[in-house]
Design a protein around this nucleic acid. Structure first.
Lengths: 344, 344
DNA sequence: TTGAAAGCGCTAACAC
DNA sequence: GTGTTAGCGCTTTCAA
């Protein structure tokens, strides 16, 4: 048996004995239709398992496709996965589907992805922009009213909506927490590239907290890395200093994994405040104090922003700042592991 | 200034002074073209920033769209995020783009998503099937040669390719590890619904290990939950038993978070083997032994399977089993926390 | 090597 | 309330 091809509008029309346009009217709920045709059409549609082809719709109508393009650095990173889930949950109810790609923080791949999404006529574009990415090709689309939202990091020189975390404030509070617990030599492990917005902001927050406490900034206490392994090495270097830090701020979830692994190996009693929450932080010894981001809310805000634009909002581009939250779990305590070695 | 609409093939053709078909031939690299036209066309394409509209291509050619539809339960779950990243990395090089949706393990949402992806004429469909989902509407598409791959769990009664973890074997090895370390009362925390393939397989592996060791299966030692909080409560119940378990197998990453949190609160010296790796497992006290899954490989295998089918492979459906790996990190040791209370 | 015409699945614009 | 025609952006088919 030859399997029949997917039914078309014309097939349904023929089946019912009406014109294609009538079926279209029934399915799209525009234009008037008599109750009886409606019923007969819907019956045939159900029987044939017909569905309108959204691509053909979008081509003919000249409007955008019912998709939202999303470019993130890495799908496997739970932070971005949560962002994506927040976006999806928000736009889903409006009939929009997510089209996604990972840039790997490579500006070229990012541009390829945005171009390909634009060629697909996405309804909106959401991008976690890579350092050095060129967004000039977005200008014309912005001018035509395409909603573009930059996520987690601002874009460069384009008047777009943006959703970011309160990076600087969060890092400042996290660092202040360590200072409040008596630490004066506090390290920072940042990710790379150094020009990355979140890296800069967080390190700025770290420095601000030091400055407020009158603690001089010591460049030697700043480590940086591309990945978990590098973060471990960076921390090892700090620990090997003449005068090593008694506490460390780790710049994101990946840095945290490397730093904690190294601390576990070294056994050094170094307090850690992590930016971005990680699972089971409260179960570590000492429990890990974190500056939790809220990636799902970031995604939801990004989705809501795009939907507002699609609904006709032409106001000036806005930047939404999703607040980070300091969760004290005890790793701010001074030399907690060392305490155990002292007599009570 | 009115922003010009996106250029079309005809625009490029007019610009160069050739027919649309010629531009099409140049861009698609089919049909013969003279070197000089080629160059002039490409110049104009670059200057106008023209890109072929893949939706129009797919409509006219009758072929599938250059997208792959992916339905997963939850984008925010790092396991599925990693699966997605493996898929994307594999299909990307073949010009395919990921279209994704979260089902929330709701069979209806899953069906809605697959239907909408099919209406979009995706090149392939990948689904983490929910319990109770109806896949009968996929039959006709399978017959027409659409690659359908079920991921993490087999589908129901359809001859499709499938990629799963070695769930039963992994759970058996994890449980055997606990037995080898002297445990005889071993609990199991499974996720819900009970009929979920991975839950059944893992629990079966757990029972198999018990049976091999001649340990009777005690239903009272099996807890189950929907989420992290529920897992904590389920474990609390086991701990409150007359004769509580000395070790526990946790059925997936979410169950592990809840179980570990509860253990942290209770302070009970219970050994844990977790199915699915979690970050910083080696930093917990005692370090968490895990049966690590390999979600990225699962995704890659799923992608490769679909690509083979698209390349014309018509052989019988295959099931790829991605091997789990027991990573011993010490939490199998008997009552390790209790040891610390004993004099050396 | 190139082009003209027709048409994919659908809807806009108009007619009746 | 319904149908007809034309045409979206592209490729197929055929002819030159």
């Amino acid at each position: 048996m030859v399997s029949p091809r997917r039914p078309t509008l014309a097939d349904v029309a023929q089946e019912v004995g009406v014109s294609a346009k009538t079926v279209s009217r029934v399915l799209n709920g525009n234009g008037p239709t008599s109750e009886s045709t409606r019923e007969r059409v819907l019956e045939a549609v159900g029987r044939l398992g017909f569905q309108l082809n959204p691509m053909a719709q979008s081509i003919r109508s000249g409007g955008p496709d019912t998709t939202v393009g999303l470019v993130i650095p890495d799908l496997a990173n739970p932070f971005f996965g949560s962002v994506a889930s927040g976006i999806e949950a928000t736009v889903r109810d409006h009939g929009l589907t997510l089209v996604m790609g990972s840039s790997g923080d490579d500006p070229e791949r990012e541009t390829d992805l945005t171009r390909s999404f634009l060629a697909r006529r996405v309804s909106a574009l959401m991008v976690v922009p890579s350092v050095g990415a060129d967004h000039s090709h977005l200008k014309r689309h912005l001018a035509q009213g395409l909603p573009v939202v930059f996520i987690d990091r601002p874009g460069h020189g384009l008047p777009t909506d943006t959703v970011v975390s309160s990076n600087r404030k969060g890092a400042r509070e996290g660092t202040a927490h360590l200072i409040a617990h008596g630490h004066r030599r506090i390290g920072f492990i940042g990710d790379l590239p150094r020009g990355l917005y979140t890296r800069r902001e967080r390190q700025a927050g770290y420095r601000a907290a030091l400055a407020e406490a009158g603690i001089p900034y010591d460049r030697a206490l700043v480590g940086e890395a591309h990945d978990e392994h590098g973060a471990a090495k960076a921390l090892a270097r700090l620990l090997a200093l003449q005068s090593p830090p008694t506490a460390v701020v780790s710049g994101n979830n990946v840095m945290t994994l490397g730093a904690m692994a190294e601390l576990g190996r070294s056994g050094e009693p170094v307090a850690v405040v992590a930016i971005d929450d990680v699972p089971m932080a409260e179960l570590l010894t000492p429990a890990l104090t974190v500056v939790a981001q809220d990636p799902v809310t970031i995604g939801r805000e990004a989705g809501a922003t795009a939907l507002r634009r699609l609904a006709g909002d032409r106001s000036r581009p806005r930047t939404v700042v999703v607040q980070n939250r300091l969760i004290q779990r005890g790793s701010g305590e001074r030399r907690s592991a060392a305490d155990q070695e002292l007599p009570a």
